[in-house]
Simulated assay, not measured.
Amino acid sequence: MTEGTVLLAMDFQNGIAGRFAETALMDRVREAVAHARNTGIPVVWVHVALRPGYPELPETSPFMRIASHGDLDETSESTQILDVLGRREDEPLVTKRRVGAFSGSDLAAVLSGLGATNLVLAGVATRGVVLATWRQAADLDFGVTVLSDACADPDEEVHRVLTEKVFSWQSDVLTVADWIAR
């Protein structure tokens, strides 16, 4: 087991990552999850979900623009983790109320309970949950690895710039194959 390491699988939910369900991205996410499970690395799933009517969001919130484009009601099918990824019931599911995985969630408590010191990030979208979580994790002194090919963004150029130029500033950026080989 890689002591203190946790894999965060973020926003792989029907309403956000559903368009990627039948792509190679999901194969790589499944590979990362399988590797984590096989080596004793906890997998923590993160999704964004809001209460009915979105009382968490004032009308002036920039996040309201994002929320209004999709159904983020916590009871909706759109907020459920994609079936193709095979989330296990014994793997924590963290509900967040904003873009970053730490924002409006109990992720910090879950990570503390798991003894986490290093986070491995996978998620959709690269410019959203991955970027926001990467930034907060670095500020909280976690070691961070971004799995570049287990992340995706609607804009491939944004994904490329973040994974090739930005994330390496304060983290390791690896493919799933390279992470497994380590």
Rank of each mutant, 00 (worst) to 15 (best):
46 V>K: 02
52 P>L: 02
84 V>W: 01
124 V>R: 00
95 T>D: 06
59 E>C: 05
57 L>N: 03
58 P>V: 06
122 A>E: 00
150 A>W: 07
109 A>T: 06
96 K>H: 08
67 A>E: 05
23 T>Q: 15
165 K>E: 05
120 V>S: 06
122 A>G: 06
132 A>K: 05
120 V>I: 08
174 L>D: 06
129 V>K: 05
153 D>C: 14
22 E>F: 04
85 L>V: 11
72 L>A: 10
44 V>N: 05
12 F>E: 04
70 G>Q: 12
61 S>L: 09
135 R>A: 08
157 E>D: 15
91 E>T: 03
166 V>W: 14
176 V>A: 13
68 S>Q: 15
26 M>H: 09
25 L>V: 04
84 V>C: 11
25 L>F: 14
45 W>H: 12
75 T>I: 06
160 R>Y: 15
60 T>H: 12
152 A>E: 14
169 W>E: 13
49 A>W: 04
130 V>D: 00
175 T>Y: 05
28 R>C: 00
26 M>V: 14
104 G>Q: 05
151 C>P: 09
76 S>V: 02
7 L>K: 01
59 E>G: 02
20 F>E: 06
115 G>I: 02
181 A>E: 09
8 L>I: 09
88 R>I: 00
182 R>P: 03
104 G>R: 00
169 W>K: 10
149 D>H: 14
116 A>K: 03
173 V>L: 12
135 R>M: 05
4 G>T: 00
170 Q>S: 11
178 D>R: 04
